[in-house]
Design a protein around this nucleic acid. Sequence first.
DNA 1: GTGAAAGCGCTAACAT
DNA 2: ATGTTAGCGCTTTCAC
Lengths: 330, 330
Amino acid sequence: MATLKELAKSLNVSISTVSKALNDAEDIGEETKRRVKELAETLDYKPNKFALGLKTKHSKSIGVILPDIQNPYFAEVLYGIEKAALEAGFDTLICVSNESYQQEVKSVRMLTENLVDGIIISIAKETLNLKDFQHLTNLKAKKIHLVQFDRVSPDLACDSVQIDDQESVKNATNQLIKSGKNKIALVSGLGSLNVAKNRIQGYKAALKENGISKNIKLLEVDGVDKTHVQFKNFIKQNTFDAVISIDNKSGIIFQNIMQHYFPERFKKVKIISFIHEKDALLTSPPLNFINQRGAEIGILSFNLLKQRITEKEKNKTIRKEKIIASINFQ
Amino acid sequence: MATLKELAKSLNVSISTVSKALNDAEDIGEETKRRVKELAETLDYKPNKFALGLKTKHSKSIGVILPDIQNPYFAEVLYGIEKAALEAGFDTLICVSNESYQQEVKSVRMLTENLVDGIIISIAKETLNLKDFQHLTNLKAKKIHLVQFDRVSPDLACDSVQIDDQESVKNATNQLIKSGKNKIALVSGLGSLNVAKNRIQGYKAALKENGISKNIKLLEVDGVDKTHVQFKNFIKQNTFDAVISIDNKSGIIFQNIMQHYFPERFKKVKIISFIHEKDALLTSPPLNFINQRGAEIGILSFNLLKQRITEKEKNKTIRKEKIIASINFQ
DNA sequence: GTGAAAGCGCTAACAT
DNA sequence: ATGTTAGCGCTTTCAC
């Protein structure tokens, strides 16, 4: 790897001239700049990150903390973040909390040690339950900017990006109603997350608006791994002509169980689910889906963060972006 | 963040004494070591990574390059790697190539600039097709160790960890045969990957051993996103009493399509699939699965890498670990 | 318009 | 047993 020193020697100028030339400093002659940049290009000079970090105390990199990398939604958000970060010349350090508070604290610490300029986080379930956000509030003192997405805690004063959960589910429910359904069930594998509360509220709001509030049918579980029996019982004990699944798995399971055990009833039921288009195609017939627009959320999150990193004047106004999900009937 | 300088001042000793004490150098008095370490502990001293990297040219970190983070298998391997790395005190930098050669090259470059001590990679499809491994072979000159897993290229002289694909599929096929099946189909969404070739070979070997080689039924596609029609046609045109899916999606789709369009035939068909246990539970009935033991592969990969990083004598022998998958009938 | 020098936090060879 | 010093690659102030 070429260094400033080597460039300087080759060109018979001083190290500081080379440094300034590459940084387009005012006081360097145009001709010199040209020569320096040309040689840097041919020698494929890249500034040494460690020297830079040591000197400047920041690293032109950002950290991302995801609760669960196996969830395709988070993987898609990550994709958006990385894409935007790459274009802006930032490295991305990825951490996975696995929904654990301890792991999240460790991740924050690791990112801090790596002098990231900012962190994009979707908070772990455990942290949300504990309501202990000190590791995150501490970041302000270290001048590390923070952006939350998806699992947004109102207790945290920072920019955020999320789906408008309530509005999105209300939309979806209304569309089902318009298509003639009026006994709509809702299935959630999200436990007590705020996200779940908001989505359920949207569902209830739509039923209410349409005067069918007495038809509320809720199946709530925390995680869907061993819940086949609960699903089956729910189906047996309830009448419904449509189902909204508000997490990324229960819709698939619900459809499969109906198809398996209640094939006749299944034919008359419309299911819509918060899943990725790719997963919607795993089932047959394909599932209708609520598109969470993960990549867009990622890009938006990065852009908010970048604004904070680059802005000179501290702007106190907190930005809360809400995106409406798009509804896809297949 | 506390620095050596601050510790030194507090203790009225020199910076180098502190440094040596923390590194347990021979020539520092026990009492001094104790005092230094104690203060370091209370002040929560952590060596500055940038200073260290600048000085030592390595970073006590490793890089991981995955082709696709949305694949739960890779996510699980990642989990194993991170766990092992954390225990050994290494940071993990994660890159996703999205199956793209260009992106893989960029990732290698980024990791190199970050002075990782080693890289664990599962090679992108595109790279495998192009057979251009220069970005990887170059690593040797930079003294960055390399370990491959899963998508192992024989053209690359480095340690590797993988499932014994042939043996694993042979096992699974044999078990199906023992359970009375003799018209076994194989479905692949893996395109022309070596992994696919080996798995298909295992399937054929088992059929041959059992004298039913004339019953070979193959459905091969490259990616499963828009292939419902192909699946349906295959099912219509072939008779089979069991199916082996050798990727992480086709089994689910296959089962769902059969259940949807051919419910009677479906009842007599046994399906087994290369998927994660969690995904096996998405379907009803749950899918039988071939457990790829991702976490173990991750841990093993890291351990191989760590050996290379820490060993003094360059050991020329290349280690190729092969793990047999476990077969789970539900 | 260009260069010399200090210093970021650390290690290690070389004094003492 | 402890301290001094040089230097990793870079930026930046100050001098020329």
